[in-house]
Design a protein around this nucleic acid. Structure first.
Length: 110
DNA sequence: GACATGACATAAC
DNA sequence: CGTTATGCCATGT
């Protein structure tokens, strides 16, 4: 009942995003059984125990890092993504290449 | 309770 | 690539 359950579902999905891939807020919301609640994902990440969560693998639907450019969070996310081999150019990521396709690892576009 | 804000999305122009 | 509009909703004032 409490929104806590929703947060749990969200954190759960985020935790399952494979290394080197990224998912959009909306995608995470859908996978968490919360269609249309992309915003809640952002809120959940903000409240989340970032220590254990690959929050950096979540970006917006346009493949752009949602945090303010040049903010500490932005740089941290960019750094973590690059460390996983995800190319970030001008705060952007190519979703066709790094987007997380649930159920299989893009075997053709690698 | 009303109002404003924001790590968002989608559609339409 | 832009802007506007609408939907969404937890949080904070």
């Amino acid at each position: 009942m409490p929104i806590n359950a929703s947060y749990q579902a969200i954190w759960n999905v985020v935790s399952s995003i494979p290394r080197g891939r990224v998912a959009s807020y909306g995608q995470v919301a859908r996978l968490a059984g919360l269609p249309g609640r992309a915003r809640l994902v952002g809120t959940a990440l903000g409240e989340a125990p970032s220590r254990q969560l690959p929050w950096h693998r979540v970006i917006n639907a346009q493949g752009r890092i949602a945090l303010p450019p040049n903010s500490p969070g932005f740089r941290e996310q960019r750094k973590r993504l690059r460390e996983e081999g995800v190319m970030v150019v001008k705060g952007r990521v190519d979703l066709r290449q790094y987007g997380w396709k649930t159920g299989s690892d893009s075997p053709l576009l690698d």
